[in-house]
Design a protein around this nucleic acid. Structure first.
Lengths: 173, 173
DNA sequence: CATAAAAGTGAGTAATCACTTGCAAATATA
DNA sequence: TATATTTGCAAGTGATTACTCACTTTTATG
């Protein structure tokens, strides 16, 4: 990974996250990254290849983010950590997560498989806590978390903060 | 509203909903609608004006959809109708709602103000039912509903159906 | 040091973009 | 029926699109 390759990746991530994939041209990415436009195609083949490279970083990043939850042994702590997950994101990573939401709707790239381990862990936790329908509890909480994250990314974290303690209390964790 | 005007509106709605705003050109819309490209600009000024015309229809449609909930007097029924709302959408209207989700992320058009009356009604219902924090309950259920609707539009209704009865039981409505 | 491979450039390409213009056909109004 | 207005079309416009190619510079290897 050369210096200029990283510059391209960073510029593209930022521009895609702000404006969307289709609204950003390769020439604008090149300008933002201070490289020639041809270099993008040398390294990534085509525009879609550039996006794929960004998304590959994504996969590792996402997995890392909740790896400590998957290996958690206390069910209550599992739920607690899952609820607080969207609130613990660094602002410097907002671009990255915003891109995920944008792509989900702009290009129908789901990313659902990437969170399956977390979903299964949540189902396990709810089962341990003797909930009647752990799978559906997990799916519901996942829905809540997803929508909260969306709210944070679009409207800012302060609009969602009140929900954090409310949910922790509601689930008694 | 002439016949061709409606054809343009319908073609644009469908194409925008499937591919997104930026990915659909005015020439493709014209072709799909069987009109000359110039006619789009005659009637709607520019591409953004065409989108605005579609979104104006949207506002009326969305308001109509939950108007019966806002005027509901039984709190339990209010919650019940809100939960089942995403499941009662006609498939012919999926395009329209898909476009709403797409625009929320592609062009950061929120549409949050359009559902405020529903949110307030839900808060009222939870208060009537003696929930401790009706506003946050409403916000949480709204998050769930939004995410379920998204799931229906992206992955099909069968992926979300199991959650319907689960939620109705959970909220005891 | 010599040579090959990789990294990087910048001027091209055809196709497509949103949009305009000049003019004909249809419709409304008198 | 005469005239004005709206509706519609086809052929444009310059700008921008993703991408290519011939070329130079840098880096790695024997």
């Amino acid at each position: 990974m050369t210096d200029k390759q990283e510059k391209i990746l960073n510029a593209a991530l930022e521009l895609f996250a702000i404006h969307g994939y289709n609204a950003v041209s390769t020439s604008k990415i090149a300008k933002e990254a201070n490289v020639s436009e041809g270099l993008i195609f040398r390294h990534f083949g085509n525009k879609k290849g550039l996006l794929d490279a960004i998304l590959n970083q994504a996969y590792e990043r996402a997995t890392l983010l909740y790896s400590h939850i998957v290996s958690e042994e206390d069910p209550k702590k599992t739920i607690r950590e899952t609820i607080t997950l969207p609130f613990r994101l660094k602002e410097s990573e907002y671009h990255f997560w915003k891109l995920q939401f944008k792509l989900k709707w702009e290009l129908e790239i789901s990313g659902a498989d990437k969170v399956r381990p977390l979903l299964e862990k949540m189902a396990w936790a709810f089962e341990e806590l003797n909930y009647k329908e752990p799978c559906k509890e997990a799916q519901t909480l996942h829905h809540i978390g997803e929508s909260i994250l969306g709210g944070i990314l679009r409207d800012g974290i302060e609009t969602q903060i009140p929900l954090k303690d409310f949910l922790l209390k509601k689930y008694d964790v």
